[in-house]
Design a protein around this nucleic acid. Sequence first.
RNA 1: GCGGGGUUGUCCGAGCUUGGUCAAAGGAGACGGAUUCAGGCUCCGCCGCGUAGAGCUGCGUGGGUUCAAAUCCCACACCCCGCACCA
Length: 984
Amino acid sequence: MVTETTNSRNVGDGVSKYSLKLKEVEEYTRRVWDAEKPYFAKPRPGQPKRFVTMPYPYMNASLHVGHAFTASRVDAYARYSRQKGFNVLFPFAWHWTGEPIVGISKRVTEGDPSLIKTLTELDGVPPSELHNFKDPYYIASYFTSTGRAALKRLGASVDWSREFATAHNPAYSAFIEWQYFSLREKGYVVQGTHPVVWCPRDKSPTGDHDRSQGEGVSPDQMYLVKFVLDPSKEGKRDADLSGVFLVAATYRPETIFGATNLWVNADKQYVLAEVDSERWIVSEYCANVLAEQRRSVRVLKKMPGLTLVGLTASQPFAKTPLPVLPASFVDPTFGTGVVYSVPAHAPYDYLGLVELQTKAEAELRKIGLDPVVVKGIKPVSIIEVEGHGDYPAIEEVQRLGIHGVSESAAEKATSNVYKLEYNKGELKTNCTGFEGMKVSLAKQAVYEKLREMKLADIYLELPQPVVCRCGTRCVVKILENQWFLKYSDTNWKNRVLRELAQMDVYPQDSRKMYEDTVAWLQDKACVRRSGMGTPLPWDREWIVETLSDSTVYMAYYTIAPYVASGRISANQMKKEFFDHVFYGVGDPSEVSKKTGVDPLLLEEIRSEFLYWYPVDLRNSAKELIPNHLTFFLFHHCALFDERHWPKAVSVNGMVTVNGGVMHKRLGNFVPLSKALEDYGADVTRCALLGGSENLDDPDWNTTVVRSVTENLYAFVELVERASKEGDYIFAEQRLGEWVYARLKRRASEVSSNLEVMRTRSALNEALYGPWDDLRRYWKRAGDTSRRVEKTYLIEWLKLIHPFAPHIAQWGYGVLGGTGLIEHQGFPDTTLSEEEQLLLVQEEYVDVVAEDLLNLIRLVQNKGSAEVAYSSELKRRVAKALVTNGSVPVKVTPDVIKLVSQEIGDKAKAAQLAQRIVKSLSEWRTQPPKLVSQLIDEEADTLIKAAPYLEKTTGLRISVCAEEESADMRRSANSAPLKPTITIS
RNA sequence: GCGGGGUUGUCCGAGCUUGGUCAAAGGAGACGGAUUCAGGCUCCGCCGCGUAGAGCUGCGUGGGUUCAAAUCCCACACCCCGCACCA
């Protein structure tokens, strides 16, 4: 309730004043609904049905205006469909599966201040409730109950008897178990091994949203190249290095031919380790990562980087000795911490080499290097690039003016050279076995050759550092034995494409997005280790992940009321039960024996499913196309008969607030409950629906909300006056008929727009359109009372009902209607011939009025105007032209022939034809018959409209035929439906 | 990198798939006027140019096809959005 204080504080604020009235209206209607309970949907055999859904929202927060937008669209469609005579089911449920709810409970337990602030300030959680939020179940229940309340208040016509949550719900779990057993049986759930970004501390994959750094980074494939160390130099290092590999990581194995030396970071820690029964030297960090990538790793000995400097390893092909040198740019946490140096083609290597070579000899000796060897190293050119010299790396370093490895431009130079050589380079003759090969191809070829020699391998690395929210640096892990949905399956994909082809997809533009998603989709992990949800029935360590337990649950809506009422229980919901309900498998009495469900009840549930399924429309935000909505299609065609595949999907943009993406962190989060409290349900609905209807994002802002408030209020006022001031009829009969005809046409527009989920167009037509018609009526009929017939208002209320149901129901009641307005059907949309003519005639009057106004602006002396319609002869010609089949748009020889036949004067025919056709062509979209009638009644229409034209223009209007005109020279120019105007 | 979408009058936004009904819907807003004690609402007018009209110029830029293009074709520029084990 709005209190007295709120009221007085806001005096002067127009919105608030109107909002009060609108809230009274809202409460009126809520009382009606509470009494009538109109939205419980029961199967009614014989009556056509529509089953409409939106994805259940995730319950880690309050519902916001974005949810309200989607819900309003579905609700508008649902309400409209009921008016059209469909038996509509609009169910709702709550998504509890997954990690975030648990995450919140953890953070509350830890006392995270920013989270607590968000909960209390943005989600509106009373501080007294907070201590309960240590329990994830409580959190989910809390937001579910506030969400339900908000949605009810929004006026969503939901059948709440089917409500459920996806966790802590044995019956739903039974359904998910059935789903996954079935998918597995069909071969769509498989076990697999895939690389993931992994947090070693959390021991779980780290998705984008779980990262404090490195969003969007995914594993990249690198190549390991193993260099055999020369054991003769082991001496002072107290380790047996025979057969030991120094393992370098690279993106460019083909450059091995240009290697002049190896780099290690002398200041970092390396290890000698047994890796898959070989002995490798890599950085200590890398050894840990290797263990995550399906290798057995046993560290034998730590080896400081410095101890590696001065060793020699041999080039794998030529076996030439390559010295191991120190380089500060080598990162031990990237790759193996060992790289091989190709100064001719890698800017870092060149810069590092120059840096080392310019050091004092004594310094080199101090770290165990022979100055002669170091200074003797020369870049080896192995790649030919047209238009470039032998050393692209050196060229690029000089071009960018780089002097040292620590300069950031070195990064840029590296990528430039890489792109250049990859796209345009060829290997030179010194690359034995690969001469003349394109770099782009050589990369793989060289790797394979090395692999054959057992000197190369694959390594997965993150191109940029990724840090988990918990603060831990992430690595690439190859996760084994995880369960996947086999979305890569070609047959499955083809089935989905077929499904898609026979579905309606709104808006049209989005169809391609689904097709692309289907094509692009790979196997998807469908289980997680933690979070709320249903354990994978055959491997209970895993929980069915949230995007994977939400794909066919719409079918569960047909069972849910039986669970809710206690007529069936979770332990009865065995495979046989679902197979029977969804597929009709098994004899009821036998299924009954196995499940304990009464055979009659079993048949009732089966027929309930058959009645409601398939889903007729699923609407959501566009961001769900690449995931949920496409999964929804995949699972349906995996699990259900073709006749149960969805009929239509539609998407909308995401609501922005004051132009920005709604985000709690940005503080522009608008909870639905707050919007409802501030502005009321119908305003919230209409403001959102009026915002957008295609893939664009509607914006929620005060300007829009205010204007919608004013508009709705004006409408309410109109209704209220009509209810108080007694009966009124449109006195001007002809125009009264016109107003009704216009309404029919608008209803037809509303209808065709809603059918394809163009909710904004529909709303605009329903809400604003009739105002224009009425204004015109009042003006045209000279009616200053600005009143409306009740019957008309009731038709208008029916039109508005899908969008502003509270006002519609209230208005209906106030005007003396009984029961629910939605039972009164949708306004008639069929126009009689008379009505069509009426509409066209008024359009004609408008054109004349426009011409008059146009002229007035150009003329000074204005007192009166003469409107001269064309002669009998011209009209005859024009009618001959239109009755000829269609309204002419172009002067053709046929037209001229016809005209000259009519007037019997060939010379004049062409000119006349031109003028007449031009005039007629303006009416080309109208049926010829109608145009012909319009011509017949042109004079009459003008005469009747004269008073209106006078009022509009402020001129005295006289209407006459062209031959009676005071200015015959001008009136000779007249054409049918194009009178001449003379102002004097 | 891969893929998708977009660029319209002061702003938002329809229309472009099936070229002519498009100076271009609808909404918002500015301005002038009416009403009002006053503000808001409401109402009338008006918002590219054009002093007798049925025209001109215009829908990111440049070119093309056509009797005719916001709408079709080509090139260019700029902007936005997805890319997974997560809701």
